[in-house]
Design a protein around this nucleic acid. Structure first.
Lengths: 218, 218, 218, 218
DNA sequence: GATGAATGAGCTTTCATTCAT
DNA sequence: AATGAATGAAAGCTCATTCAT
C-alpha cells in the first residue's frame, strides 16, 4: 500500500520537489539527481514522467501559474462588484508572490529561458496566463467604465499596462532582495492609477484617501 | 601597425562581440570559442582580458548600462524644465531599448543570473543603475511638485514605482515578442500617471489631450 | 550476465588498467580517456568510482602496497626462525620489485606527488607501509639480538635504516635502468650488514661465507 | 649600469630563481610566468636562455649537482688520509642536503621526470653524478683496503651500494618530513658499515666506540 | 513500472611557447 | 636583447539521458 498509487499523483510529487530544488539552486545549477533524491525516487523514474529536464521546468511553471489563475478566478467569483474585484486581483497577486518569495527568482529564469529555447511551449504557457490576465483586466475595466467609476480608456491597453506594471513591481521587489513590502507597493500603485482614471465625481469623493496614500509611499 | 593598439580598445572590442554572441545565442548557450571567433581572435586572448565567462557577461551588461545612464544624463542636461526632463527620460529609455531589441532577452538572463550567482558584483551593478534612476526620478518628482505641476506624493516611492513600471513595460514588450510599439506604451503610461498626479489646475488644462491618449491605447 | 557483476570487481578492474596505463605513460602524461579505453569502458564510468584522477592514482598505489604488505606478512608467518624471516623479507622485496620492474618508476612519481599535493592521504598511505616495515624490522631485530645472533643495537634506528637502504637500492636499480641484478644487490647488502652486526661467535662461523660474498659484489 | 651584464650571469640568475620557484611549488605546478616574475624579468626573456621549461628544470638540477660534486672534490682534496676522506664525503652529503631541505622534494621530482621524459639528457646528468660518486667511492675503498683498514671487498659494488644507501637515507628523511637528524643517521650508517668491513685488528681497536654508536641509534 | 550504472558529448580554463615590436 | 600580447592544444570533469535488468 504505497502512499502514491497513481501516475498523476507521482507526477505532481515530482513537480513539487523539482520546484523546491529549482527554486533553491536555480534551473541551470540543479541536477536531475538532486530532484530525484529530494523526491526519494530513482533518477530514471523522472524520465518515465518527463522527457527532458526542460519539460520538468515547464511543468513546474505550469503548476504555479495554473494555481495562480485559479486563485484569481475563485476570488473574482466571490467578489460582488467591480471595485471589490479590483482588490481581489491585487490581493491574489500579492499573496501569491509573497507566499513564493523563495521561488520568485525562478520565474525570471523561466522567462529568460522561454525567450531562448526552441521549444515554443514555454512562451505559449507564459502567454496563456498573460492572456487570461489581460482578458480579465479588460473585462473588469469595461465594467468600471460602464459603472461610471472610470473615465473612458482603451481597456485592452490599460489591462496590458496593468499586467506589465504588476510584473515590473514584482521584478523590482525581487531584484531589491524583497526589501520593501509588496502589498504596500501594490496599494500605492493602485492609488496612483485610481487617481488618474477615476471620474471627476468619484475622484472628488476619494481624493483625500488617495492623497494620503500617495503621500505615504511604500 | 595593428588596427587595435591599446588594451582598452581591445577590451571594448571583445565586449562588443560578446554582446553580439550572447544576445544572439543566450549566455548559457554561448561558447567562449564563438565569441573569440566572432572577434577574430584566439580563445586564449579573451582570458587575457576577462578572468571568466561570467566576468565577460558582467562587462557586457556594464557597458550597456553605462551607456544608458550616460544617454539619460546628457538628455536631462539638455532639457530646460522639469516637464521636458520627464520626456527626456522616457525617450531615452524607449530609444535605448528599441535600438537593442535583439539584445533585450539578454537583460532578462542577466537579472536571472544576478539572483543566482555567488558573485555580488552582479546585483551591485544592477543596483547602480537602479539607484541612479531612483535618484534622478526622485529629484525630478520633487521639482514637479514644487513647480506646482504635481500634487504631493512620496517622491522616493513614486520614483521607485516608475522605475519598476518601466521595467515591467519592457518585460511585457520582450515577452510579447515586441509586438506593440514601445514608445506608444510609454506615452500611454505617462498619460495615465499624469492624469493621476497632476494638480487640479494642470489637469484641467491637459484633460482633453490626456483623455484622447487614454482612449487611443497602444 | 555481464562479466563484471559487482562494484568492487569493477573498481579493481579500473585500478588494474590504471596501473598499466600510469606505469607505461607516467601519471602526468596519462589521460583519463586512455585508462577508460584500456579498461574498455566509458570515461564517465571512471568517475563513478573515483572522484578525481588523483584518487585513482592513490588507489593504484594502495593496491600495490597492500599486496606487498600481504606478501611479507604471509612469508614471515611461514618462516620458522628469525634468520629465515630476514631472508623472507629480503626475498619478498626483491620479488615484488622485480615482478613490477615496469611499474617501478611510478613509485617514484607517487613519492614525488605525495610531497606536493595538498591531499594528506598520499603521505599517510606511504607511512602506513613504512610503519609496517619499521615495526616488523624492529621486532625481528629484537629477536636476533635476544637469540644471540646480533650484538646490541638500537632496534628502531636499525629497522629504519634498513628500510631506507632497501628503498635506496631500489632507487639505484630504477635509475640505473635496472642494469644490475636486484637480488644480488640485496644479498650483498645483507652480507655487509651481517658482517657488522653479527656477534663475534656467529661472525667467526660465517666469516668465510660472508667474505666470499663481499668479494663477489653484484 | 645594470646589475647583470653578461649572458652567463643572467643565465645563473634565472636558474637561481627557477630553483626557488620549482622548490616551493613543484615542477608541474610552477608556471614560467612565476619564475619570470620572481626573477624580475619578462616571460619571453627566459626563452632567450632556455628552449623549454624542461631545459630549465635540467639546468636547475645541473647547477645543484655541479655544486655538490665540487664540494666533495674540494673537501676530499683537503683531507689527508683515507679515513678523513670518508668523513669528508659523509659531511659533504649531509650538509648539502640539510642546507637544501626545502628543495629536497624537487630532487625526487627530477628523478621521476628523468625516468619518463624522452630527453636522454636527464638520466645522463643523473648518472654523471652517480658515476662521479661511484668512482670516488671505489677509489677510496681501494685505499682503505690497501691501507689495511678494510677487509677485501668488491670495491665497485660497495661504492654503488653506499651511494644507494645515501639516497635511501635521504629519501626516508624527505618522506618522513625530515623528522630525524640527517647527520646522526649518516653516522649510524657509517658505524654499521664500519663494523662490518673493518679488519679484525682495526675492529678490535674501535669496537667500543662503534658499539656505543650502534646502541645510541638516531 | 522503477532503477541506477554507464555513457560521452561538451565546455571552460590553463599555460607553454611564439614572435612582432 | 627584451618583452608580453596572442595563441590554441589539451584535459579533467559534469551531467542529462539511455537502457538493461
Amino acid at each position: 500500500m504505497p502512499a502514491v498509487v497513481d501516475k498523476a499523483a507521482k507526477y505532481s510529487e515530482i513537480v513539487r520537489h523539482a520546484a523546491d530544488v529549482f527554486s533553491q539552486t536555480g534551473y541551470h545549477a540543479s541536477k536531475i539527481q538532486d530532484i530525484a533524491t529530494a523526491a526519494g525516487i530513482g533518477k530514471g523514474t523522472i524520465y518515465e514522467y518527463f522527457r527532458t529536464k526542460e519539460q520538468l521546468f515547464l511543468a513546474v511553471y505550469d503548476a504555479w501559474m495554473s494555481e495562480f489563475e485559479q486563485i484569481i478566478r475563485t476570488r473574482i467569483e466571490l467578489a460582488e462588484d467591480a471595485l471589490t474585484k479590483v482588490d481581489a486581483i491585487r490581493d491574489s497577486a500579492v499573496e501569491f508572490y509573497q507566499s513564493r518569495a523563495m521561488q520568485a527568482p525562478l520565474l525570471l529564469e523561466f522567462w529568460a529561458h522561454a525567450l531562448r529555447t526552441d521549444n515554443p511551449a514555454f512562451l505559449a504557457r507564459i502567454n496563456q496566463t498573460r492572456d487570461f490576465l489581460k482578458a480579465t483586466g479588460t473585462k473588469l475595466t469595461k465594467e468600471l467604465v460602464q459603472a461610471g467609476w472610470f473615465r473612458e480608456v482603451d481597456e485592452r491597453a490599460f489591462a496590458k499596462l496593468e499586467s506589465g506594471i504588476s510584473d515590473g513591481i514584482f521584478l523590482a521587489w525581487v531584484l531589491d532582495g524583497q526589501s520593501f513590502p509588496l502589498d504596500k507597493a501594490f496599494t500605492f500603485r493602485q492609488s496612483l492609477i485610481g487617481m488618474g482614471l477615476l471620474n471627476d465625481d468619484a475622484r472628488a469623493v476619494l481624493t483625500n484617501k488617495l492623497n494620503t496614500k500617495l503621500k505615504r509611499g511604500f
